[in-house]
Design a binder for these strands. Structure first.
Length: 413
RNA sequence: GGAGAGGUGGCCGAGUGGUUGAUGGCAGCUGUCUUGAAAACAGCCGGGUGAAAGCCUCGCGAGUUCGAAUCUCGCCCUCUCCGCCA
C-alpha cells in the first residue's frame, strides 16, 4: 500500500509511476474519497466533541429539569452523529479497498518497458556446457531413470502434478536441506517453519489479496488459504508489531511447498516439472531499516546467486523492467539458469525490494533507537531457490551419455 | 466438537454506566546523588489521525444509553476438563 499522504500531495508523481508499470490505479477515485472522508471527519468530530462535553455536563447536572433539557439536546446530536458515522464508515471502506488495489511504484532506476522484453541482463555466470551428445530434456532423463512419475501424478491429483520417486525425491530433499543450511550457516538467516494455510488478512499484507484471489487455492468452508509462497506467512510474522531498531535487520529463511492456481493456457509449459500447481521453494525474507533497502537487496541477490554458483550451473542475472515487476515490488532482479535440454533460461529466483509497500499493509514498524514515533520498516524477499527448476538445471546440465545424472559436488556427502 | 473460565497499555494487575485513555506495581527512559554502578528520590513512559484543538482505540463487530472498559447479542482467541486424532 502506498502512503495516502503521498497520493494526496503528489498525485501526478504517483500517477506517472503507476503508468510506467503499464497498469491502472484508481488514483482519482482515491483523491475524491479521501477529500470526502476528511470533510466528513471534520464535521462529525466537531459534533462528537460537543457530545462528549455535553454528556459530561449531564453527569454533573443536579437540577432534574436542566438534566432533561440536556439529555434531549444530546439525543438529537447523537442521531446526527450516527448518520454521519455511517457515511464515514462507507467512505472509509471504499477508500481502503481502493488503496489495496494500487500497485507499488517502481524505483527510478528500473527500466521502463511494458513487459519482460524490456528486462536487462546484468551479468552471466558459468559457461554453458558443450555436449558430445544431444542433451535431453529433463522429462526424458527423469522418466528413463524412474525418478519422476508424471502419469501417476496426474492420476492422483490431476494435470501438472507429479511424483518424485527414489533418488529424485532424495535429490530434492538434499537440495532443500543444503539450501537451508547454506542460508542459516553462511548468510545469517534464522530458519522458520511457517503455516501453509493462512487467513485472508495475511495474504492482504503481502499484496496477494484482494487482487489475485484467482491464483490461490482456498478452503471453501473456512477463511483458510494455501500459501503461494513462504513470503506470505513469513512476511506476516511480525504483522501489527513494533520492533526495536536495534533488532534490525532480521533475516528469515523458510522451506515450504507453494500452491498456485496458474491461470495459464493449456499446452504451455506442460512438459516436465517447470510449472506445477504445487512446488517447493526455499525463501529468504528480510526486515530492514528503510535506509538499508538498497544494500540489502544487493546482498540478497548475492545470497541467492551463491546457491547457483555452488551448484556449478550456468546462470544469469536479470534486471526486470517496470512492466514485469508485479504488483508489490518496487524493484526486482531475477536469476535464471540455463537448461540445455529444454533449451531455455529458467527463472529460479526472484529477488524483490518492496520498500514500505508490504510493511504498511501488514503494519510492521520499528521504534527508532532513542525513541520517537514508530516508523514503517522495509521488506525484501528472494527465492533461494525454487526446487523444481533447480532440479531441472541439475538434471539437464549434469546428464551424462549413459543417461545418468552426476550429483553436484557440493551435495556429495 | 462439548462444558466451564477468561481476554484491559511491553509485562503483571485495578476498574460501582458519568472529569477513566484508564489506579497501582514491574520493566524502560531522563535527572539528582555516585569515580562508576546499585539504592533512594523526582520526572517521563501505548497506538492511530491531525498543524493544533480535537476525534478514535480496553480482543473484533453490532446493539442499549445523553454517556459503555463497565450492560446485551454474535464472532475470534487463550486457558482448564471431556471427546477425537498424527
Amino acid at each position: 500500500m502506498l502512503d495516502l499522504r503521498l497520493i494526496r500531495e503528489e498525485p501526478d508523481r504517483v500517477k506517472a509511476a503507476i503508468a510506467s508499470t503499464y497498469t491502472d490505479a484508481p488514483i482519482d477515485a482515491i483523491l475524491a474519497a479521501d477529500e470526502r472522508r476528511r470533510a466528513l471527519l471534520t464535521e462529525v468530530e466537531a459534533l462528537k466533541a460537543q457530545l462528549n462535553a455535553g454528556s459530561k455536563d449531564v453527569g454533573k447536572a443536579k437540577d432534574p429539569a436542566e438534566r432533561e433539557q440536556l439529555i434531549l439536546a444530546m439525543r438529537e446530536l447523537g442521531d446526527r452523529i450516527a448518520a454521519l458515522d455511517e457515511e464515514v464508515k462507507a467512505v472509509d471502506a471504499r477508500l481502503h479497498d481502493l488503496m489495496l488495489h494500487v500497485p507499488n511504484m517502481p524505483l527510478p532506476h528500473v527500466p521502463v518497458a511494458p513487459d519482460e522484453s524490456g528486462n536487462v541482463v546484468i551479468s552471466e555466470h558459468g559457461a554453458k556446457r558443450t555436449f558430445d551428445f544431444t542433451p535431453k530434456p529433463h522429462w526424458e532423463i527423469a522418466e528413463d531413470l524412474g525418478i519422476i512419475d508424471f502419469e501417476r501424478g496426474v492420476k492422483v491429483a490431476g494435470t501438472r502434478f507429479y511424483f518424485l520417486r527414489g533418488d529424485g525425491a532424495r535429490l530434492q530433499r538434499a537440495l532443500i536441506t543444503w539450501m537451508l543450511d547454506l542460508h542459516t550457516r553462511d548468510h545469517g538467516y534464522q530458519e522458520v517453519y511457517p503455516p501453509y494455510l493462512v487467513h485472508a488478512q495475511t495474504l492482504e499484507g503481502t499484496g496477494n489479496l484482494p487482487k489475485f484471489a484467482a491464483n490461490l487455492y482456498r478452503d471453501i468452508d473456512e477463511d483458510k488459504w494455501l500459501i503461494p509462497t513462504a513470503e506470505v506467512p513469513v512476511t506476516n510474522l511480525y504483522r501489527d508489531e513494533i520492533l526495536e531498531e536495534a533488532e534490525l535487520p532480521i533475516y528469515h529463511v523458510a522451506y515450504t511447498p507453494c500452491f498456485r492456481r496458474e491461470q495459464i493456457s493449456a499446452g504451455r509449459d506442460v512438459r516436465g516439472i517447470k510449472r506445477g500447481y504445487q512446488f517447493d521453494k526455499v525463501e529468504m525474507v528480510k526486515f530492514v531499516h528503510p535506509d538499508k533497502s538498497a544494500e540489502e537487496h544487493q546482498r540478497l541477490i548475492g545470497e541467492a546467486s551463491d546457491v547457483l554458483r555452488l551448484l556449478e550451473v550456468p546462470y544469469r542475472v536479470l534486471q526486470l523492467s517496470t512492466g514485469d515487476l508485479g504488483f508489490a515490488a518496487a524493484d526486482k532482479v531475477d536469476l535464471e539458469t540455463w537448461a540445455p535440454g529444454s533449451q531455455e533460461w529458467l527463472e529460479v529466483s526472484s529477488c524483490g525490494r518492496f520498500e514500505d509497500f508490504q510493511a504498511r499493509r501488514a503494519n510492521i514498524r520499528f521504534r527508532p533507537t532513542g525513541g520517537g514515533k514508530p516508523r514503517i520498516l522495509h521488506t525484501l524477499n528472494g527465492s533461494g531457490l525454487a526446487l523444481p527448476r533447480t532440479m531441472i538445471t541439475i538434471m539437464e546440465n549434469n546428464q551424462q551419455a549413459d543417461g545418468t545424472i552426476r550429483v553436484p559436488e557440493i551435495l556429495v556427502p
